[in-house]
Design a binder for these strands. Sequence first.
DNA 1: GTATCAACCGTGAGCGCTAACATTTCCTGG
DNA 2: CCAGGAAATGTTAGCGCTCACGGTTGATAC
Lengths: 339, 339
Amino acid sequence: MSAAGPKPVSIFDVAKQAGVSHQTVSRVINDAPMVADTTRARVKAAIADLGYRPNRSARTLAGGAVRSVTVFTFDTSLYGTAETLRGIEDAASAAGFTVLISVLDPEQTYTDGDILGRLSHDGAPAIVIAHDETTTQARRILRKAQPGAVVATGDDQLSREPGAADWLVPLDDRVVAKRATRYLLSMGHRTVHYLAMPGKARRQDGWAEALAEVGIEPPEVVQSGWTIGSAAEAAAELVADPGVTAIMCGNDDLAFGVLHAAHRAGRSIPGDLSVIGCDDSPMAAYHVPGLTTVDLDFRGVGRSAFELLRHKLEGGPDPRPSWRSPELVVRETSGPPRQ
Amino acid sequence: MSAAGPKPVSIFDVAKQAGVSHQTVSRVINDAPMVADTTRARVKAAIADLGYRPNRSARTLAGGAVRSVTVFTFDTSLYGTAETLRGIEDAASAAGFTVLISVLDPEQTYTDGDILGRLSHDGAPAIVIAHDETTTQARRILRKAQPGAVVATGDDQLSREPGAADWLVPLDDRVVAKRATRYLLSMGHRTVHYLAMPGKARRQDGWAEALAEVGIEPPEVVQSGWTIGSAAEAAAELVADPGVTAIMCGNDDLAFGVLHAAHRAGRSIPGDLSVIGCDDSPMAAYHVPGLTTVDLDFRGVGRSAFELLRHKLEGGPDPRPSWRSPELVVRETSGPPRQ
DNA sequence: GTATCAACCGTGAGCGCTAACATTTCCTGG
DNA sequence: CCAGGAAATGTTAGCGCTCACGGTTGATAC
């Protein structure tokens, strides 16, 4: 009810005004060749005059080049996903693509139909930011249904299958966590505890592997929610235990929660306890003490994912990877255990 | 190239399989009445059987009920916008709407055509998260072009015009900042300094008004960027000045930057310096010391914005506002000035 | 038995655009 | 001066769906 004003101007209105056929107008708005310069100018004038804007629905319906991406993700307000989304958005809008987002609930399981039904149409291009079970599942469904029009970021067992580079922008969570854990071990800690985000994630695997490498039985994982508060609560017992000297956290937010809990428990950082995060969110450097963490270039990953998708869609030269590789950033929350 | 598999199944394929007309299928997928239960079941079976999924482009083209919203915002990775977007997404996807995002660059100015051209079609529903100049401008353009299909969150001069409640979910930045400044003044501070986010924003106005109320000439505003780092840098001089006893920050992130700068300058909080933020981001409560700030229910605002838009689109009962009103949260970074 | 009116279902048109092909125009060479 | 061909433009069909009708059935009323 009562949407726009009069009626939108269509390609025919422009054609009439410019004294050409609608097809010529179509050619102009698509920058197609085979249009005389004078005609082109006349059409452009008519477009400006009437305030014409092409209807995207009609365009995709008619089978023109697709100019939209659907992004599947969970919780756009987390640092990692927000940054990745931002990277995709940057690249996509620069290329004239529309970005649709579809937020998946990690608590829920989705059928093939649920996922595919969120696309604007069958075969619509999609990017999956896959860092947990639900989104990884979505990626699997989409790849099965339309391998030509989907790429993903993230990491899972199948990433190592041959040809994964064609559709995956790998941000190897496993290796990242492994490296961080090794670093802690190298500082002399007897073992490293792990505070986990909800859902089974690859970072936890990396942590366990690093311990296994040196023959340490991984201690029981402590489960946290997604928020800083839940981490503080979940870690309360852990930080109170004087036997615990090092904690690796699923991400920076959880690490901040642990730091807070440790502060309340009166434990000194890093003397009594080393804490390490993951992501290098902007806060990490400005927290006091500065958080040791792993720098992850989510925005670059998002950009690359879009470029990869576009390459699959439109061909052209292979886009070379353009994101910073993960790097351990040692700050002030980590060090050797006391004595 | 090489998008989907064979060819997508259309409404006609389903019709044929179920032995009905395409229109009956249309009725079923739109939950329209006037379809016999047995027929409905048969059609649903055919839909499941063939894996049919309606094409959204075709639907909107054909003039059916609109089922998408375009969200205009800037920088989806900032706390406030990310949360608002999340709220919109929650409500929208629950209502079966698709969410499109369109990120505007605050550095850029957009023409009417730029903004309107980002809609999927003329008159497409839109929500503007308007907390700065660029997005406020976008809101103005959209309201002029299609008043029936746009709502906004945020605050600006025109919010006070009669009937604004029909299209605005007000998060009164001005009043919020005013209240926070008054609180600081009430603690006995001679004046309050302001660290500003880029662009002219309403929070700054509120701060200035609170000072003016008690006859204080507002000190020069210190400009910061959007990041914590830029805030730390921008505030370096300010925090080093022993005459400065209270700083109000554009948002929590900037406050964290100030806190960091103050720490480096060796000033004690809140003894030497009171710092107050705005947003009550999750970190605020877990920072050490806890950040005094104003709780802003962005997610609730986002949800309400969507409900309001939906009301405009489809009629129905007036949605009553359902977000928490802003509230000052006093923690440990604020107090009376020393002596 | 026939008029009446629901309830149910089908037919045709058209949304705004692009693809594919048909047609016209204009310039070239011999 | 006209064949030949490229450049420029026009024509037709159809993407998948919904809207606005028109038709058909079957129960009820008289």
